[in-house]
């Protein structure tokens, strides 16, 4: 069974009198353990699609089965719980809490699902270890480089053992070398921990790390093919 099953979802934004179709009946399924890249120009609907995929937004119509359960009609707090347990987010701008140590940033998702203080610290340290930042837990984001900050964000997405990581242009703010390091980390997590990784990117070099490329244009999927060349 596919981990993500999208059936004919549409998203319509109303801007006064005008209705804008951000997504037109998109259907897609992604299997557990896939590494997919979503590409497309601005306004193609890929961001809207990612928001729905990440349970941050609800589709106007259509169905979304996440691990076999329909989440398209869930309420705000139920969606929050799904995000907490099943989806790890990695953003272009890192989105770490300022003035808060790396370890506490990693602990953040566990604040909202009742993990005990003791267990939190242990799991956060383990997650930092996985991204190669053990020992940096007490640094604040401002004391870390961009690559390190993004790895703290990845550690945060791992800490609740979410089966899916959604990365929205994760290398957009990083230089080429650091980008490569971060992408290697995603590949490692994908192959070693069988985490489903879905990433949005403009860059073909970055998309090349994935094994499937989905292209959006004007709210439709225009191509969806496995990457053949390595």
């Amino acid at each position: 069974m596919a981990i993500i099953e999208i059936r004919e979802i549409s998203k319509v934004y109303r801007l006064g009198e005008i209705a804008v179709n951000a997504l037109n009946a998109v259907t897609l399924s992604i299997e557990r353990g896939e590494f997919a890249a979503i590409m497309g120009p601005s306004g193609s609907g890929k961001s809207t699609f990612m928001n729905i995929l990440g349970c941050l937004d609800k589709p106007t119509s259509g169905g979304y089965l996440l691990e076999g359960a329909d989440v398209s009609g869930l309420k705000r707090d139920d969606l929050a719980a799904i995000r907490n347990k099943k989806i790890g987010f990695v953003f272009q701008g890192f989105n770490l809490l300022p003035r808060t140590s790396a370890i506490e940033n990693v602990e953040l998702p566990m604040l909202y699902n009742g993990v005990s203080i003791k267990e939190r610290r242990g799991r956060a340290e383990a997650a930092l270890g996985k991204v190669g930042l053990s020992g940096r837990g007490n640094h604040h984001p401002s004391q870390l480089s961009g690559g390190q900050q993004q790895r703290v964000a990845i550690a945060r997405s791992l800490v609740n053992d979410a089966p899916i990581i959604l990365a929205d242009e994760p290398t957009g703010n990083l230089d080429t070398k650091t980008s490569a390091e971060v992408m290697e980390l995603f590949v490692k997590l994908n192959t070693e921990s069988n985490i489903t990784v879905i990433l949005v990117t403009h860059e073909h070099d970055i998309a090349a790390y994935s094994r499937r490329i989905i292209k959006f244009l004007d709210g439709n999927i225009v191509s969806d093919e496995p990457k053949t060349k390595t």
Binding site: R76, A80, A81, Y112, N160
Partner: peptide
Amino acid sequence: TREIGIRMAVGARTWD
């Protein structure tokens, strides 16, 4: 606002 957004993204509910 951004901090609130981050907290919501990682699973903070209304009452959190």
